[in-house]
Design a binder for these strands. Structure first.
Lengths: 229, 229
DNA sequence: TCCAATCGTAGAAACCTGTAAAAATCACAT
DNA sequence: ATGTGATTTTTACAGGTTTCTACGATTGGA
């Protein structure tokens, strides 16, 4: 999860980077308002922390420009005490929250987590992610994390579900290990590809495929795997 | 689609009217609580945005009176920071959601759309917030804040009731921590997700579930929980 | 047959959860 | 205001579960 920080005070910027990284975020940053849009386009962060007082272009304006481009990424503004907060969060700009300087690390992190949590989960989840689908005689239900096959029911883990969904979305295609790791584990995953094989083994068991004669998750020697639904 | 706004601060009222209109809604409004019912009857809006602090009649009372007339229209309350929120939503008054001032436009619109969506689609949700329901051998009574199981009776807290109600409304589905925090604690809750686990522990005790082999509140590793009724 | 790729297993590491107890907060009466 | 009891939240640490890694056995194809 990547967060972009726009802040000109190098002391505060360094502190923020450190705090965010130690909380498990990737950080992209810049120190001028007029660079913010370019950096945003390049990194596509999940959230933007934006100082109000910036050289080049004020935080207000950066915020406005992002919203004008239909960017819906959460924006958290850093304001000095006494700055006009109502305009920041209220009705004009479209920032989602603000913190006044000097701010406590705990409060900032709490607000970041709250903003990231918003829009997750709730009712509006894209149907595609929740729709049931079938592989052979098995029915996979992403809502309940269960796989029904005949009279047996298997519980699936989060990773197994994601992998099955990806296979199902590309049924019949030969999917390389690299591609599967990128799509299911994430782009910055560093590890051996054996991890993937491990999950395949588990899935074959739960699908009722015997390892030596799988009917659904087929090995493509030297490349990867392919799903026959 | 018409929305009614009851708000005495002319600055906020104007802003709201503008925002809502530019989002495609018709707006009816008034600035006194004791006019709200009359305006409601005349316009029959699809949703009501209701400030708590109002001249004439408080937002609490307006809300109560609407519900007393069997009006099921979604009500979104505007509260100042620090006002008693638990009483506003759900348990006593019958409001459907709340936003604390100062609020972001995007947050307000998101919640309005969520409420309108809820009303249309699944008819599952609008059941009374006070109706009894059962989980396994236990009967939960939201009116008395009690849980009856066999001959024992457990007292429940407000949080526990709200959480159980949400689980019950989505029985069988895997509910992520984020989703539960958003729906039960509110979108602007600042806190760790461990708080949720704590309540789960208490609820398992009261439901008679042992932690290592729960039958009703199951944990889904890495994601959240799911209720088997 | 030979070589490289894949598979199964088990233990390690990383991460997540259960739980109790302390701390903070809230609700209400003094 | 101040104190009191109840509720909620945080903290800390002990498990648990999943994921990862290492390594030898096995398999598939030239």
């Amino acid at each position: 999860m990547k967060i972009m920080v726009v802040e000109d005070d190098p002391h505060i910027l360094l502190g923020l980077q450190e705090v965010l990284k130690s909380d498990g975020f990737d950080v992209a940053s810049c120190n001028r308002g007029d660079q913010a849009l370019a950096v945003f386009s390049k990194h596509r962060p999940a959230l933007v922390v934006l100082d109000v007082m910036l050289p080049g272009l004020s935080g207000y304006d950066v915020c406005k420009q992002l919203r004008a481009k239909k960017v819906t990424t959460p924006i958290l503004m850093l304001t000095a005490k006494g700055q006009e907060i109502d305009k920041v969060v209220g009705l004009d700009l479209g920032a989602d929250d603000y913190v006044t300087k000097p701010f406590g690390v705990r409060e900032l992190l709490a607000r970041i987590h709250a903003l990231l949590r918003r829009g997750q989960g709730t009712a509006a989840e894209p149907q595609s992610l929740e729709a049931e689908f079938k592989i052979g005689a098995a029915t996979i239900n992403p809502k309940t994390f269960q796989l029904h096959r005949g009279k047996t029911t298997e519980e699936l883990t989060a990773k197994e579900i994601r992998l099955l969904q990806y296979f199902h979305a590309h049924a019949g295609d030969v999917l390389s290990r690299d591609r599967l790791l990128n799509e299911v584990w994430g782009l910055n995953y560093l590890g051996t590809t054996r991890t993937l094989d491990q999950v395949i083994v588990q899935l074959r068991k739960k699908l009722g495929d015997n390892g030596d004669e799988p009917k659904h998750l087929l090995t493509v020697h030297g490349v990867g795997y392919k799903l026959i639904a």
